[in-house]
Protein backbone atom coordinates (compact mmCIF):
# COMPACT_ATOMS: atom_id res chain seq x y z
CA UNK A 1 0.00 0.00 0.00
CA UNK A 2 1.49 3.35 -0.97
CA UNK A 3 1.59 6.31 1.36
CA UNK A 4 -1.43 8.08 -0.10
CA UNK A 5 -3.60 4.99 0.17
CA UNK A 6 -2.35 4.30 3.69
CA UNK A 7 -3.12 7.84 4.84
CA UNK A 8 -6.51 7.84 3.16
CA UNK A 9 -7.30 4.65 5.06
CA UNK A 10 -6.03 6.19 8.32
CA UNK A 11 -8.14 9.33 7.82
CA UNK A 12 -11.25 7.29 7.09
CA UNK A 13 -10.74 5.11 10.18
CA UNK A 14 -9.87 8.10 12.35
CA UNK A 15 -13.06 9.92 11.35
CA UNK A 16 -15.24 6.91 12.21
CA UNK A 17 -16.82 6.95 15.70
CA UNK A 18 -16.43 3.88 17.91
CA UNK A 19 -16.21 3.94 21.70
CA UNK A 20 -15.71 0.79 23.79
CA UNK A 21 -18.56 -1.67 23.26
CA UNK A 22 -19.90 0.34 20.32
CA UNK A 23 -17.36 -0.46 17.60
CA UNK A 24 -19.89 -1.32 14.91
CA UNK A 25 -19.12 1.63 12.63
CA UNK A 26 -15.42 0.81 12.71
CA UNK A 27 -16.17 -2.79 11.73
CA UNK A 28 -18.34 -1.52 8.89
CA UNK A 29 -15.54 0.78 7.76
CA UNK A 30 -12.93 -1.99 7.87
CA UNK A 31 -14.81 -4.78 6.08
CA UNK A 32 -14.52 -3.56 2.45
CA UNK A 33 -10.76 -3.11 2.93
CA UNK A 34 -10.32 -6.70 4.07
CA UNK A 35 -12.70 -8.64 1.83
CA UNK A 36 -10.82 -10.36 -0.96
CA UNK A 37 -7.52 -10.21 0.93
CA UNK A 38 -8.27 -12.80 3.62
CA UNK A 39 -9.73 -16.32 3.62
CA UNK A 40 -12.40 -15.58 6.21
CA UNK A 41 -13.88 -12.69 8.10
CA UNK A 42 -16.21 -13.02 11.07
CA UNK A 43 -17.45 -11.22 14.16
CA UNK A 44 -17.31 -13.02 17.53
CA UNK A 45 -19.60 -12.75 20.54
CA UNK A 46 -17.73 -9.73 21.92
CA UNK A 47 -17.71 -7.89 18.60
CA UNK A 48 -14.08 -8.58 17.62
CA UNK A 49 -13.58 -8.69 13.85
CA UNK A 50 -11.47 -11.76 13.06
CA UNK A 51 -9.69 -12.02 9.68
CA UNK A 52 -7.85 -15.24 8.82
CA UNK A 53 -5.12 -15.04 6.22
CA UNK A 54 -3.59 -18.39 5.37
CA UNK A 55 0.17 -18.68 5.25
CA UNK A 56 2.32 -20.02 2.43
CA UNK A 57 2.65 -23.33 4.25
CA UNK A 58 6.35 -22.81 4.99
CA UNK A 59 5.59 -23.72 8.63
CA UNK A 60 2.50 -24.16 10.75
CA UNK A 61 2.77 -21.35 13.31
CA UNK A 62 -0.50 -19.55 14.08
CA UNK A 63 0.21 -15.91 14.79
CA UNK A 64 -2.26 -13.46 16.27
CA UNK A 65 -2.04 -9.81 15.21
CA UNK A 66 -4.29 -7.33 16.94
CA UNK A 67 -5.21 -3.67 16.78
CA UNK A 68 -8.04 -2.28 18.82
CA UNK A 69 -11.01 -0.58 17.18
CA UNK A 70 -12.35 1.31 20.19
CA UNK A 71 -11.47 4.87 21.12
CA UNK A 72 -11.95 6.83 24.32
CA UNK A 73 -15.15 8.88 24.54
CA UNK A 74 -18.09 9.81 26.72
CA UNK A 75 -21.46 8.30 27.53
CA UNK A 76 -24.70 10.08 28.43
CA UNK A 77 -25.69 9.18 32.01
CA UNK A 78 -28.33 11.80 32.86
CA UNK A 79 -30.11 14.95 31.66
CA UNK A 80 -30.49 18.31 33.34
CA UNK A 81 -33.72 20.29 33.55
CA UNK A 82 -32.24 22.73 31.01
CA UNK A 83 -31.76 19.98 28.45
CA UNK A 84 -28.00 19.49 28.84
CA UNK A 85 -26.40 16.05 28.91
CA UNK A 86 -24.53 14.75 31.96
CA UNK A 87 -21.72 12.43 30.92
CA UNK A 88 -19.20 9.89 32.17
CA UNK A 89 -15.96 8.83 30.50
CA UNK A 90 -15.62 5.64 28.51
CA UNK A 91 -11.93 4.82 28.82
CA UNK A 92 -9.50 7.31 30.33
CA UNK A 93 -9.95 10.88 29.11
CA UNK A 94 -7.99 13.79 30.50
CA UNK A 95 -10.60 16.12 32.02
CA UNK A 96 -8.31 19.13 31.38
CA UNK A 97 -8.95 19.07 27.67
CA UNK A 98 -12.75 18.78 27.53
CA UNK A 99 -13.90 22.39 28.09
CA UNK A 100 -14.41 24.21 24.79
CA UNK A 101 -14.63 21.10 22.62
CA UNK A 102 -17.00 20.22 19.85
CA UNK A 103 -18.31 16.65 20.02
CA UNK A 104 -20.50 14.25 18.08
CA UNK A 105 -23.45 12.70 19.87
CA UNK A 106 -25.07 9.34 19.09
CA UNK A 107 -25.48 7.36 15.86
CA UNK A 108 -26.81 10.47 14.08
CA UNK A 109 -23.57 12.26 14.97
CA UNK A 110 -25.47 15.28 16.30
CA UNK A 111 -23.13 18.21 16.98
CA UNK A 112 -22.69 19.20 20.62
CA UNK A 113 -20.43 21.51 22.61
CA UNK A 114 -18.85 21.40 26.05
CA UNK A 115 -18.93 24.85 27.63
CA UNK A 116 -18.18 25.96 31.16
CA UNK A 117 -19.13 28.91 33.37
CA UNK A 118 -17.95 32.28 31.98
CA UNK A 119 -14.61 33.34 33.41
CA UNK A 120 -16.30 36.48 34.83
CA UNK A 121 -18.56 34.36 36.97
CA UNK A 122 -16.23 31.49 37.80
CA UNK A 123 -14.53 31.07 41.16
CA UNK A 124 -10.86 31.88 41.21
CA UNK A 125 -9.91 28.30 41.20
CA UNK A 126 -7.23 26.61 39.20
CA UNK A 127 -8.56 23.14 39.79
CA UNK A 128 -9.56 21.11 36.78
CA UNK A 129 -13.33 20.72 36.45
CA UNK A 130 -14.13 17.04 36.89
CA UNK A 131 -16.04 15.29 34.11
CA UNK A 132 -18.97 14.75 36.47
CA UNK A 133 -19.43 18.54 36.65
CA UNK A 134 -19.31 19.09 32.86
CA UNK A 135 -22.27 19.00 30.51
CA UNK A 136 -22.72 18.56 26.77
CA UNK A 137 -25.07 21.02 25.07
CA UNK A 138 -26.82 19.80 21.91
CA UNK A 139 -29.26 22.71 21.87
CA UNK A 140 -32.18 20.78 23.35
CA UNK A 141 -34.90 22.96 24.89
CA UNK A 142 -35.56 20.86 27.95
CA UNK A 143 -35.07 17.51 29.63
CA UNK A 144 -37.71 15.79 27.49
CA UNK A 145 -36.13 16.80 24.22
CA UNK A 146 -32.63 15.90 25.45
CA UNK A 147 -33.91 12.51 26.59
CA UNK A 148 -35.43 11.86 23.19
CA UNK A 149 -32.43 12.99 21.12
CA UNK A 150 -29.72 11.52 23.36
CA UNK A 151 -31.15 8.86 25.69
CA UNK A 152 -29.16 7.35 28.53
CA UNK A 153 -26.31 5.26 27.16
CA UNK A 154 -25.78 7.45 24.05
CA UNK A 155 -22.13 7.53 22.95
CA UNK A 156 -20.18 10.73 22.40
CA UNK A 157 -16.91 11.10 20.47
CA UNK A 158 -14.56 13.92 19.51
CA UNK A 159 -15.61 15.76 16.33
CA UNK A 160 -12.19 16.03 14.66
CA UNK A 161 -11.75 15.38 10.92
CA UNK A 162 -8.30 14.03 10.09
CA UNK A 163 -5.97 16.17 7.99
CA UNK A 164 -2.31 16.82 7.19
CA UNK A 165 -0.40 19.17 9.52
CA UNK A 166 3.05 20.26 8.43
CA UNK A 167 5.03 17.06 7.90
CA UNK A 168 2.68 15.18 10.20
CA UNK A 169 -0.97 14.15 10.14
CA UNK A 170 -3.61 15.10 12.69
CA UNK A 171 -6.78 13.34 13.78
CA UNK A 172 -8.70 11.77 16.64
CA UNK A 173 -8.46 8.14 17.75
CA UNK A 174 -5.01 7.41 16.28
CA UNK A 175 -4.89 5.20 19.38
CA UNK A 176 -5.54 2.77 17.83
CA UNK A 177 -6.86 3.44 14.37
CA UNK A 178 -3.20 3.88 13.35
CA UNK A 179 -2.67 0.27 14.44
CA UNK A 180 -5.83 -0.74 12.56
CA UNK A 181 -4.53 0.93 9.39
CA UNK A 182 -1.17 -0.85 9.77
CA UNK A 183 -2.91 -4.19 10.24
CA UNK A 184 -5.10 -3.66 7.16
CA UNK A 185 -2.00 -2.78 5.13
CA UNK A 186 -0.31 -5.97 6.26
CA UNK A 187 -3.33 -8.14 5.51
CA UNK A 188 -3.68 -6.62 2.05
CA UNK A 189 -0.16 -7.76 1.17
CA UNK A 190 1.01 -11.20 0.01
CA UNK A 191 0.71 -14.24 2.31
CA UNK A 192 3.32 -14.77 5.01
CA UNK A 193 5.05 -18.01 6.01
CA UNK A 194 2.81 -18.22 9.08
CA UNK A 195 -0.96 -18.48 9.37
CA UNK A 196 -2.13 -15.02 10.37
CA UNK A 197 -5.20 -14.16 12.41
CA UNK A 198 -5.69 -10.41 12.20
CA UNK A 199 -8.09 -9.40 14.93
CA UNK A 200 -9.55 -5.92 15.26
CA UNK A 201 -10.41 -5.98 18.93
CA UNK A 202 -13.05 -4.30 21.06
CA UNK A 203 -12.97 -2.79 24.53
CA UNK A 204 -9.22 -2.25 24.89
CA UNK A 205 -9.77 1.10 26.60
CA UNK A 206 -11.93 -0.38 29.35
CA UNK A 207 -9.66 -3.29 30.31
CA UNK A 208 -8.09 -5.11 27.33
CA UNK A 209 -11.24 -7.23 27.11
CA UNK A 210 -11.73 -8.09 23.45
CA UNK A 211 -8.11 -9.21 23.13
CA UNK A 212 -8.47 -11.64 26.01
CA UNK A 213 -11.28 -13.44 24.19
CA UNK A 214 -9.40 -13.26 20.87
CA UNK A 215 -6.35 -14.88 22.47
CA UNK A 216 -8.48 -17.72 23.78
CA UNK A 217 -10.32 -18.22 20.47
CA UNK A 218 -7.28 -18.12 18.18
CA UNK A 219 -4.94 -20.01 20.56
CA UNK A 220 -1.86 -18.68 18.74
CA UNK A 221 1.82 -19.61 19.11
CA UNK A 222 2.78 -15.94 19.28
CA UNK A 223 1.11 -12.54 19.23
CA UNK A 224 2.04 -9.11 17.86
CA UNK A 225 -0.02 -6.20 19.15
CA UNK A 226 -0.16 -3.01 17.08
CA UNK A 227 -0.72 0.24 18.92
CA UNK A 228 -0.69 3.99 18.67
CA UNK A 229 1.42 4.92 21.70
CA UNK A 230 2.39 7.91 23.81
CA UNK A 231 5.02 10.34 22.49
CA UNK A 232 6.02 12.74 25.25
CA UNK A 233 8.67 14.50 23.18
CA UNK A 234 7.67 18.02 24.18
CA UNK A 235 9.97 20.53 25.93
CA UNK A 236 10.31 19.66 29.65
CA UNK A 237 11.91 21.24 32.67
CA UNK A 238 14.04 18.19 33.34
CA UNK A 239 15.89 15.80 31.11
CA UNK A 240 14.15 12.43 31.02
CA UNK A 241 12.55 9.79 28.88
CA UNK A 242 10.15 11.03 26.18
CA UNK A 243 8.33 7.63 26.44
CA UNK A 244 8.64 7.60 22.65
CA UNK A 245 9.46 10.17 19.98
CA UNK A 246 7.71 11.03 16.73
CA UNK A 247 9.74 10.32 13.60
CA UNK A 248 12.13 7.88 15.29
CA UNK A 249 10.47 4.74 13.95
CA UNK A 250 8.31 1.95 15.38
CA UNK A 251 8.22 1.68 19.19
CA UNK A 252 9.03 -1.68 20.82
CA UNK A 253 7.67 -2.54 24.24
CA UNK A 254 10.03 -4.42 26.54
CA UNK A 255 7.77 -4.21 29.59
CA UNK A 256 4.74 -2.13 30.47
CA UNK A 257 2.25 -2.19 33.32
CA UNK A 258 0.34 -5.08 31.75
CA UNK A 259 3.06 -7.59 30.78
CA UNK A 260 6.69 -8.36 29.99
CA UNK A 261 7.31 -8.73 26.25
CA UNK A 262 8.93 -12.01 25.26
CA UNK A 263 12.68 -11.29 25.05
CA UNK A 264 13.07 -13.67 22.10
CA UNK A 265 10.54 -11.70 20.05
CA UNK A 266 12.20 -8.42 21.07
CA UNK A 267 15.54 -9.81 19.84
CA UNK A 268 13.95 -10.98 16.59
CA UNK A 269 12.41 -7.59 15.83
CA UNK A 270 15.67 -5.78 16.61
CA UNK A 271 17.65 -8.11 14.33
CA UNK A 272 15.14 -7.67 11.53
CA UNK A 273 15.05 -3.88 11.89
CA UNK A 274 18.83 -3.68 11.92
CA UNK A 275 19.19 -5.91 8.86
CA UNK A 276 16.52 -4.03 6.91
CA UNK A 277 17.68 -0.57 7.98
CA UNK A 278 14.34 0.28 9.59
CA UNK A 279 14.65 2.68 12.52
CA UNK A 280 13.16 1.58 15.85
CA UNK A 281 13.02 2.81 19.44
CA UNK A 282 12.19 1.34 22.85
CA UNK A 283 9.14 2.55 24.69
CA UNK A 284 9.94 3.75 28.20
CA UNK A 285 9.46 0.58 30.27
CA UNK A 286 6.70 0.52 32.86
CA UNK A 287 4.29 2.93 31.12
CA UNK A 288 0.79 2.06 29.89
CA UNK A 289 -0.74 -1.27 28.98
CA UNK A 290 -1.85 -2.93 25.75
CA UNK A 291 -3.89 -5.84 24.50
CA UNK A 292 -0.78 -8.03 24.95
CA UNK A 293 -1.48 -7.77 28.69
CA UNK A 294 -4.44 -10.13 28.38
CA UNK A 295 -3.42 -12.10 25.29
CA UNK A 296 -0.19 -13.41 26.84
CA UNK A 297 -1.93 -15.22 29.69
CA UNK A 298 -4.63 -16.98 27.67
CA UNK A 299 -4.74 -20.80 27.66
CA UNK A 300 -1.21 -22.24 27.97
CA UNK A 301 0.48 -18.86 27.49
CA UNK A 302 1.35 -16.80 24.41
CA UNK A 303 4.74 -15.13 23.79
CA UNK A 304 3.81 -11.57 22.84
CA UNK A 305 5.24 -8.24 21.81
CA UNK A 306 3.84 -4.77 21.08
CA UNK A 307 4.85 -2.65 18.08
CA UNK A 308 3.54 0.88 18.17
CA UNK A 309 3.34 4.01 16.09
CA UNK A 310 4.43 7.00 18.23
CA UNK A 311 1.61 9.58 18.54
CA UNK A 312 1.48 12.89 20.38
CA UNK A 313 -1.67 13.82 22.32
CA UNK A 314 -3.37 10.42 22.32
CA UNK A 315 -6.67 10.19 24.23
CA UNK A 316 -7.37 13.77 23.14
CA UNK A 317 -9.36 15.32 20.29
CA UNK A 318 -6.34 15.80 18.00
CA UNK A 319 -3.39 13.45 17.91
CA UNK A 320 -0.36 13.78 15.66
CA UNK A 321 1.75 11.15 13.96
CA UNK A 322 4.46 10.97 11.35
CA UNK A 323 3.41 9.02 8.23
CA UNK A 324 6.93 7.59 8.00
CA UNK A 325 6.53 5.91 11.40
CA UNK A 326 3.32 4.31 10.18
CA UNK A 327 5.00 3.01 7.01
CA UNK A 328 8.00 1.75 8.95
CA UNK A 329 5.73 -0.08 11.37
CA UNK A 330 4.02 -1.95 8.53
CA UNK A 331 7.40 -2.80 7.01
CA UNK A 332 8.92 -3.92 10.32
CA UNK A 333 5.90 -6.07 11.14
CA UNK A 334 5.99 -7.79 7.76
CA UNK A 335 9.74 -8.37 7.87
CA UNK A 336 9.51 -9.74 11.43
CA UNK A 337 6.73 -12.15 10.51
CA UNK A 338 8.75 -13.36 7.54
CA UNK A 339 11.62 -14.25 9.88
CA UNK A 340 9.44 -15.75 12.62
CA UNK A 341 10.06 -19.50 12.55
CA UNK A 342 9.07 -22.19 15.07
CA UNK A 343 12.70 -22.23 16.29
CA UNK A 344 12.43 -18.63 17.54
CA UNK A 345 9.82 -19.49 20.14
CA UNK A 346 10.61 -23.13 20.77
CA UNK A 347 11.29 -24.14 24.40
CA UNK A 348 13.92 -26.89 24.47
Amino acid sequence: MNRDALLELLYMLSNTPGTSGDEIEVRRALRPHLEGHVESLRVDAMGNLIAHKKGTGAHDLRVLLTAHMDEVGLMVVDHTGEGALKVATSGSIDARLLPGLEVRVGPQARPGVIGIKAIHRADEDENVIPVSALTVDIGAHDREEALELAPIGTRITFATTAHPLGQLVAGKAFDDRAGCAALVALLQGPPLPCDVFGVFTVQEEVGLRGARVAGYTVAPAAAFVLEGTIADDLPKEEEGSPTSEIGKGPVLTVMDRSYVADPRLVRLVIQVATAAGIPYQFKQPGIGGTDAGTIHFTREGVPAITLAIPCRYIHGPVALLDPQDLEHTVALLRASLEQLTPEVIQRP
Binding site: G293, F297, T298, E300
Partner: peptide, 16 residues
Protein backbone atom coordinates in the same frame (compact mmCIF):
# COMPACT_ATOMS: atom_id res chain seq x y z
CA UNK B 1 7.67 -17.25 35.86
CA UNK B 2 6.42 -13.67 36.18
CA UNK B 3 4.75 -14.04 39.58
CA UNK B 4 6.07 -10.68 40.71
CA UNK B 5 4.33 -8.82 37.89
CA UNK B 6 1.26 -10.65 36.53
CA UNK B 7 1.04 -14.23 37.91
CA UNK B 8 0.94 -15.22 34.22
CA UNK B 9 3.31 -18.18 34.53
CA UNK B 10 1.32 -20.11 37.12
CA UNK B 11 -1.93 -19.20 35.45
CA UNK B 12 -0.97 -20.56 32.03
CA UNK B 13 0.83 -23.67 33.28
CA UNK B 14 -2.10 -24.53 35.55
CA UNK B 15 -4.40 -24.11 32.56
CA UNK B 16 -2.34 -26.69 30.68
Amino acid sequence: VQEEVTLSGARTSAYK
